[in-house]
Structure formats: C-alpha cells, structure tokens
Amino acid sequence: MVITYLEKEGFTVIHAKDGEEALRIFTLESFDLILLDLMLPKLSGMELLRMIREKSLIPILILSAKDGEVDKALGLGFGADDYIAKPFSMIELSARVNAALRRANYHVNAPEDRRRNIIEIHELMMDVENLTCSKKGQEIKLTSKEHQILKLFMTNPKKVFTKEHIYQTVWDEPYYGDENIINVHMRRLREKIEDNPSEPQYIKTLWGIGYRLGEF
C-alpha cells in the first residue's frame, strides 16, 4: 500500500523485505530518504538504523506499531528524524516524507556563505557547512534534528523559543501539542553537549515558556 501510494505521488521506491537486504541495497545505491520499519527479520530496524547512522545523515522516518514512550525515545535517540505510529494515513505519510525531503534539500542547497559559517558558543563549536559539532575539540555526534535544534539556539543566542516554535522551525510542520518529540530530542541533545544534563548550562529551561541559550 505504501509503495503504491508513494509511486503514484511521483516517488521512486525501492523495497527491502528484511534488514540485511536493506543494508546491502543502501550500500549499493543512493537515496534521498529511508522509511524504516522497526520489526524487520534477520537484522532489526534499530540495528539497521544504528549502522546507517554511522555512515550517513540521510533522513530516516521510523514506522512502527509499537506503543509507549520508551520505544519512541529509543528510536529517536538512535538518530531517526521522525516517528510515525501505525496505523497512519497515506496523507500523513506523504506529508512527513515531503517535509523531511524539504529539510534535507534546504541544507544541501543553502547559500555557500551561510553554509560555511562556524559558530562558537563558549566551549561548543558548530560547523554549519559540514554539519559537525565539537566541544573542547572533541567531536559530538548529533543527529540531523539535534543539529538543527542546537543551530537554532546558537544562531539566536538572545531569543526564547517555545516548543511550538522549535517544532515548526525544525520539523517544518504545524504543531499539534505533542510535546514528547521535543522532550526526547532536547534530553538527548543535553546528554551530548552538557557537562551535567540535570543542570544544563547551554540550553536553559524557562518553565512554562520554553528554552533559551545559556549565557557565558
């Protein structure tokens, strides 16, 4: 059903029946987006996600019938860009796919002078062009969403961001009040950039309002 619908929408779709086949195809061909089911035979979706993320920042949308915040947090923490719970409508899937492709295309085609920016805040340094981040000279491996969230704060050091603003800016979609996806990404990001995630210094929480970059 998914393949038929996306092909009618104008996409070229290549399907893998299990995780091992998916990994083999990924190493042989070039793609713009991956739709990844977690329940795969031979090689699990989570393991496949981890292996792909070691080599590529390609947008990855997880599809899963599993419920619970733990499953979502684990999937997003492993580096997925978005999470679509089954059952879902084809219209929702198409909207998520197009939004992910727009975001990826924006980064690829951003003006050269903008992509070459190197942003430094205290001990953090972000290379916007190469989508890399380091702290005290040590590389920090961020997912594409974590990178976009951190970039949002580092390029707007005096601004306060609500969860709605963060979601609409980073995900490029309307915000319907689901705070979980923001909370998960913010927690994972803090675990990577903060000395003590329980007492964050780089991204401060303004209770009842949102977040802002810390002052140094």
Rank of each mutant, 00 (worst) to 15 (best):
M1S: 14
V2K: 07
V2N: 11
I3L: 06
E7F: 03
E7G: 05
K8D: 06
E9Q: 15
E9D: 04
G10H: 08
G10R: 09
G10F: 01
F11R: 04
I14W: 02
H15E: 14
H15W: 09
G19K: 02
E20V: 12
A22I: 00
L23G: 05
R24L: 00
R24W: 00
I25N: 06
I25E: 12
F26A: 06
L28T: 06
S30L: 08
L36Q: 10
D37V: 13
D37N: 15
L43R: 06
M46A: 05
M46E: 08
L48N: 02
L48F: 11
R50E: 02
R53E: 07
S56D: 15
I60F: 07
I62M: 04
I62R: 00
I62K: 00
I62H: 03
S64E: 08
A65D: 07
E69T: 14
E69V: 15
G75Q: 05
L76D: 13
L76W: 08
L76G: 08
A80R: 13
D81Q: 07
D82M: 07
A85Y: 04
K86L: 01
S89Q: 11
S89W: 08
A95V: 13
A95E: 14
N98P: 02
L101E: 03
L101Q: 10
R102G: 03
P111A: 10
P111T: 09
R114Y: 14
R114A: 10
R115Q: 13
I118R: 04
I118K: 01
I119W: 06
H122A: 14
M126Y: 02
M126I: 15
E129V: 02
K135E: 04
K141T: 13
S144F: 03
K145I: 15
Q148Y: 02
I149N: 05
L150C: 12
F153E: 12
T155A: 09
P157N: 09
K158W: 01
V160S: 04
T162R: 00
T162I: 02
H165G: 03
Q168F: 01
V170T: 09
D172V: 00
Y175K: 01
Y176W: 05
E179P: 01
N180M: 13
I181Y: 10
V184E: 08
R187V: 06
R187P: 00
R188Q: 05
L189V: 11
R190N: 11
I193F: 01
E194A: 12
P197D: 01
S198Q: 13
S198H: 12
S198G: 04
E199I: 14
E199H: 14
Q201K: 15
Q201F: 13
I203K: 00
L206A: 09
Y211T: 09
G214F: 11
G214Q: 12
E215S: 14
